[in-house]
Design a protein around this nucleic acid. Structure first.
Length: 268
DNA sequence: AACTGGGTCAACCGCAACAGA
DNA sequence: TTCTGTTGCGGTTGACCCAGT
C-alpha cells in the first residue's frame, strides 16, 4: 500500500522519533510553547512536519502523560464512556487525565473490544448488545449518503460493535447530531435543559469525587455507569415534555446526540 | 536456534471543523 | 460570503516484540 507523504515537503524525517528529536521538541515547547504547529519544526530546527510534532508532543512528550498499564478502573471507565460516547476518543481521554486519545484507542482495539466480545459470549449478550446501538447505526447510515457498501467484513463487524461508523463515512456523526436531533424527539429537552445544567448532571453522574478533580487528580469513575440514575432528567418529573424520555439502555443514539448537542465533552 | 503468527503501539493519513483574512 | 491556512480527530498502518512451535 502506497500512501502520499503526510507533508507535501519532501526530505522530512518520518517514522519513529529519536531521543535527540524528542529533546529538541520538548525544550522548544517548554521555552516558546506551541502557538503554531506548522511553523514549529522549522523554528525548532526539526526535520518533521508540524502534524508529526504535535502528535509526538500530545501522545508522548507532554509532561502530564501517564505511562504504563491501564488500571482496571481506567479500563472500566473507557468501556462505559465508549458505550455512552462511541468512538469519541478525545472526549473519553478528556475524562481520563494523563491518558491520550491514541492510547485509549489502542487499548480499546487491543484489549477492551475483545474483553467485551468475550463477556458477550459468556453472558449471551452482555452490556454491549448490538440492538443497543442499532438505532444509532441506522441514523448514521441514513444521514450519510456516501457510506460505503463495500466495507470489509472486519469493519462491518467493528461497526456492529461500535456506535459510530468508520471514518469512511467521516462526518456522519456531526451531520447527524444537530439537525436530526432537532427533528427527532429530543428537541424539547435540549431547549428545556440549559447546557450548563445538562453538563452538571452528566458530570455528577460520571464522577463522584469532585474534590479530587479540584486537585487535578483523576477521579474514581463508577464502572456501573449502566446503573446511573438518569431519571433526574425525566420530563415526567419536572419538565413538561412528556412522551417517554428514553432510558439509558434504550436510546443510546438519543443520549449521544443530546451529549453532542450540549457541546460534547467541552461543555462538561 | 530459527521461524512464524499474533499482539501491541507509535506514527501516519485523510478529512472535517474552525479561525482569520 | 468565500477562500485559505491550521488544528484536531478518528481510522489505519506497519515495525517491533514475544510466545509458541
Amino acid at each position: 500500500m502506497v500512501r502520499a507523504p503526510c507533508c507535501a515537503k519532501m526530505g522530512l524525517n518520518r517514522g519513529p522519533w529519536t531521543l535527540e528529536e524528542d529533546q529538541i521538541l520538548t525544550s522548544y515547547i517548554q521555552k516558546y510553547g506551541h502557538s503554531n504547529w506548522r511553523a514549529l519544526p522549522k523554528l525548532a530546527g526539526l526535520l518533521r512536519c508540524g502534524k508529526s510534532c504535535r502528535l509526538r508532543w500530545i501522545n508522548y512528550l507532554k509532561p502530564e502523560i501517564k505511562r504504563g498499564n491501564f488500571s482496571r478502573e481506567e479500563e472500566d471507565a473507557i468501556i462505559n464512556l465508549h458505550e455512552l460516547l462511541g468512538n469519541k476518543w478525545s472526549a473519553i481521554a478528556a475524562k481520563l487525565p494523563g491518558r491520550t486519545d491514541n492510547e485509549i484507542k489502542n487499548v480499546w482495539h487491543t484489549h477492551l473490544k475483545k474483553r467485551l466480545l468475550k463477556q458477550k459470549k459468556n453472558q449471551g449478550g452482555g452490556n454491549y448488545s448490538p440492538q443497543q446501538f442499532s438505532s444509532v447505526q441506522e441514523c448514521s447510515v441514513s444521514a450519510t449518503a456516501n457510506t460505503s457498501e463495500t466495507e470489509s467484513t472486519e469493519s462491518q463487524s467493528d461497526t456492529a460493535l461500535s456506535p459510530q461508523p468508520s471514518s469512511s463515512g467521516s462526518g456522519a456523526v456531526s451531520s447527524v447530531s444537530s439537525d436530526n436531533l432537532i427533528a427527532a424527539t429530543a428537541s424539547n429537552y435540549v431547549e428545556i435543559l440549559p447546557e450548563e445544567e445538562f453538563s452538571v448532571l452528566i458530570d455528577e453522574a460520571f464522577w463522584s469525587a469532585p474534590e479530587e478533580e479540584e486537585s487535578g487528580e483523576y477521579s474514581q469513575f463508577d464502572p456501573q455507569i449502566n446503573s446511573l440514575d438518569f431519571s433526574v432528567l425525566n420530563p415526567d418529573e419536572g419538565m413538561d415534555g412528556g412522551g417517554g424520555f428514553p432510558r439509558i439502555d434504550e436510546g443510546m443514539d438519543f443520549w449521544y446526540d443530546l451529549f453532542v448537542q450540549a457541546g460534547g465533552i467541552e461543555g462538561l
